[in-house]
Design a protein around this nucleic acid. Structure first.
Lengths: 250, 250
DNA sequence: TACATGTATAAACGTTCATTCACATCGAGA
DNA sequence: TCTCGATGTGAATGAACGTTTATACATGTA
């Protein structure tokens, strides 16, 4: 499990920033989320903070610099959390893939707005700023490819199409895209609780790679309880009542 | 199977348009694909055709009207092809899901550029034009949800999380996103042939819904040859040797 | 009191954008 | 030959953009 406070606080954005800078980041995040970064003007951002356009340049060198702050922060955060989770989880490929999917779903759904901004707006960056974000994204993908390749080599995974690099990449990218897109129609407080959500996505991911059951995780999961696994007992109580009745959409 | 000529010709875009209009559509498609619609100027579009900006307005009422032409055409086309395929395929849910996935992969990968423009730029539309495209997209998704729900009701599918609307939607959207994102790192002439590609995606889709084997399709497919089916022998020659693009990660 | 610092302002800058419009060109039909 | 419709030109328009600049106003400190 993700140690709740660590990334949650950081995901508020603009740590170590002055108060006006943080307010500008927050306003920009809202506007970028609703309209897209390209369609959002400096005047809108500063206006939302009760400021005039010039004020932005006391805190950021440019509009792109502000976007970079938001985007790269989220990417570094995700990268860090994934690494931390993977170093604490052991060698079993099923465990490792499970951990990655759990983290991805939790981070993306929890910080839905910020994640969508990061994933949709990063191509608006240019030059070295873009290169840095792309490098992080590639690293994230390669890490999953390594897990899949290892699992396939051990006979634990059955990747559709074999273990060639192309097939492994298809599977890895599919799994990550799936998790990222969870934010598109699901949100905290929605019809599904976070553990339920994670369970579904873990199950789908394991199915995609054709994972053979290991400890207690059937490829066709029983509806029983999840695994005990990591220590942090944070799934004790449902943080929302969110009656998981069948109906609701997204 | 997709009757090759039908949609392929139509996907060239701008059917029934005058020659300059078609050239403008083609140039805009290229530019939108490379830079995004918002970042592409009317001057660039007309300049690419050896024209001046004003000339565009002899053929389209606005830049958005041109984008609409491109985007709605691709959506209607996909919708039509899916409907045609589904009406000719019988009632078996496995067959129906297989058909949808095959069509999606083929259309998106074959018309990679146009598909990416349609899927990435449609949010730039406004008002009724946007509403029309959104309606088509919803229809496409609902159609897959119906297939999954029917399959689950017949006990042929085992949707992760049960047969509630939310779970079915998660699975349906995941499958469609997966197919759409095939264009992000795969292309005709890439390391995988079209039938291979379709096979992988069909297999992953069936795994996601936990399909139980029916005619000859194991949930863990043997690596042997695919089903006979796919008629059009169109992947004969490799048109490019381009490298597989880096692909989206988290 | 004097000064430095952080922050905000109002106005303007230069650029770029989509769009408009009066006018030219040209092929086809009468 | 004349007209007409389709098409293209090239200049102009008004608006919007990101950004810069000179200036002002607090606040804390020496």
């Amino acid at each position: 499990m993700v140690s709740d406070t660590s990334w949650q606080a950081a995901s508020e954005g603009g740590v170590g920033r002055s108060d006006p800078a943080r307010r500008l980041l927050g306003a920009a995040d809202d506007l970028f989320y609703r309209q897209g970064a390209a369609a959002t003007t400096v005047r809108e951002i500063t206006g939302a903070c009760g400021l005039t356009p010039g004020a932005l340049y006391n805190h950021f060198t440019s509009k792109e610099d502000l976007l970079y702050d938001l985007v790269v922060g989220r990417h570094r955060l995700l990268d860090d959390v994934v690494v931390a989770e993977l170093t604490s989880v052991g060698d079993d490929p099923v465990d490792r893939l499970t951990a990655v999917v759990r983290v991805y779903v939790e981070v993306h759904v929890h910080a839905r707005q910020g994640s969508r901004v990061a994933n949709r707006e990063y191509p608006n960056l240019t030059g070295p700023r873009l290169a840095e974000v792309v490098a992080i994204r590639r690293r994230l993908r390669d890490r999953v490819m390594d897990i899949l390749a290892a699992g396939a080599a051990q006979g634990r995974f059955d990747i559709c199409g074999g273990t060639g690099r192309a097939s492994v990449m298809v599977a890895a990218a599919t799994i990550l895209d799936m998790c990222i897109h969870a934010t598109e129609w699901l949100h905290e407080g929605g019809p599904l609780s976070m553990p339920e959500l994670q369970e579904r996505y873990v199950a789908m991911a394991l199915r995609i790679v054709g994972a053979s059951p290991s400890d207690g995780l059937p490829a066709r999961p029983a509806s029983g309880p999840g695994r005990q696994a990591s220590g942090a007992g944070e799934s004790r109580r449902n943080r929302r009542t969110a009656a998981p009745a069948a109906g609701g959409t997204g």
